Simulated scan of single mutants.
Amino acid sequence: MEAFAELVAEGTVGIVGASNHWIWRVERARRLATAAGLPGYEVLQYHHSYLRMRTDMPSLRSVDGNLGVVSGDHLSYLRETPDLALVAYSPLLGGAYVRSDKPLDPEHDHPGTPARLAALREVAADTGATLNQVVLAWLIGAEVPVIPLVGASSVAQLNESLAAVDLELTVEQRTKLDAAT
């Protein structure tokens, strides 16, 4: 944290963030930084999307599960720590929501996925928006707001993603999406 503090002091770094750490490690680092009078993490970056991945399966980074995916622990921590921002990478699952040639990862193969996909399709039909736009609007307008990190390989994809900022889901639509398990 001292090295980050030096970079912040010289203006090279504006804010400090972490990606893909266990929440207990994030909290420990923030506590140590505060005790030492140093800048702590202000941004957390994790994989997060409407469809949920299993986090209990061993991964390349940890035998204890997939630490790079937002779980209930992350959301609970962020809800109680409003000075932290959550940036979600791969919120559109590399095109898996809209492209039949991009299947979901095996970590999405669980009983909750079909119900959540059905709810997503219903809300997209209700709003006249694309599946991707509904996913992004769901993230942006969540109780724990998310900054989605999206990529685009065409101007049309960029415009589609940008239009999600103006899509406001109703309470009923958000409840339908959140209740799907």
Results as ranks from 00 to 15, higher is better:
Pro111Cys: 02
Lys102Trp: 03
Asp126Ile: 04
Pro103Ile: 03
Gly95Pro: 08
Arg79Ser: 15
Glu80Cys: 14
Ala119Ile: 07
His110Ile: 05
Asp109Glu: 12
Pro91Cys: 07
His108Gly: 01
His108Asn: 03
Ala129Asp: 04
Arg79Thr: 13
Ala115Trp: 07
Gly128Glu: 11
Tyr97Ile: 00
Ala85Asp: 14
Ala119Arg: 11
His108Ile: 04
Asp105Lys: 07
Asp109Cys: 04
Asp105Phe: 05
Leu104Met: 02
Arg99Phe: 03
Arg79Trp: 12
Arg79Ile: 13
Ser90Arg: 12
Glu80Asp: 15
Arg121Tyr: 00
Val98Thr: 09
Glu122Pro: 01
Pro111Gln: 00
Leu120Ser: 06
Tyr97Ser: 01
Lys102Asp: 03
Ala125Asn: 14
Arg79Glu: 14
Thr81Val: 15
Glu122Lys: 09
Asp126Phe: 09
Tyr89Arg: 08
Asp105Ser: 12
Glu80Ile: 11
Leu92Asp: 13
Val87Phe: 13
Lys102Ile: 08
Ala88Gln: 10
Val123Asn: 06
Glu122Trp: 00
Gly112Ser: 11
Leu86Thr: 09
Thr127Cys: 07
Ser100Val: 06
Glu107Gly: 01
Leu131Ala: 11
Asp101Ala: 02
Gly128Thr: 10
Glu80Arg: 14
Ala115Phe: 08
Gly128Pro: 05
Pro114Tyr: 05
Lys102Cys: 06
Ala124Asp: 08
Leu92Cys: 12
Ala124Phe: 04
Thr113Asp: 01
Pro114Gln: 00
Leu86Phe: 13
Leu93Thr: 06
Leu92Lys: 15
Lys102Met: 08
Gly112Asp: 14
Gly112Gln: 06
His110Phe: 04
Ser90Asp: 06
Lys102Asn: 09
Thr113Gln: 08
Leu120Gly: 01
Asp83Phe: 11
Pro106Phe: 02
Pro111Tyr: 00
Tyr97Glu: 01
Asp101His: 06
Ala118Met: 11
Leu131Asp: 10
Leu86Met: 11
Leu92Tyr: 13
Val123Arg: 08
His110Asp: 10
Val87Met: 12
Ser90Tyr: 11
Ala124Glu: 04
Ala96Gln: 12
Leu131Pro: 08
Ala118His: 12
Ala85Thr: 14
Thr113Asn: 08
His110Met: 02
Val87His: 06
Ala119Gly: 09
Tyr89Gln: 01
Thr130Ala: 12
Gly128Asp: 10
Val98Arg: 03
Ala85Ile: 15
Ala88Leu: 10
Asp126Tyr: 06
Gly112Val: 09
Tyr97Arg: 02
Ala119Trp: 09
Ala129His: 03
His108Glu: 04
Leu104Cys: 07
Leu92Pro: 14
Asp126Met: 14
Leu84Ala: 04
Ala118Val: 02
Thr81Met: 12
Ser100Cys: 03
Asp83Val: 12
Thr113Cys: 02
Asp101Tyr: 05
Ser90Glu: 08
Asp105Cys: 00
Ala96Asn: 10
Glu107Trp: 03
Gly95Val: 04
Thr81Gln: 15
Ala96Tyr: 09
Gly112Ile: 03
Arg99Glu: 03
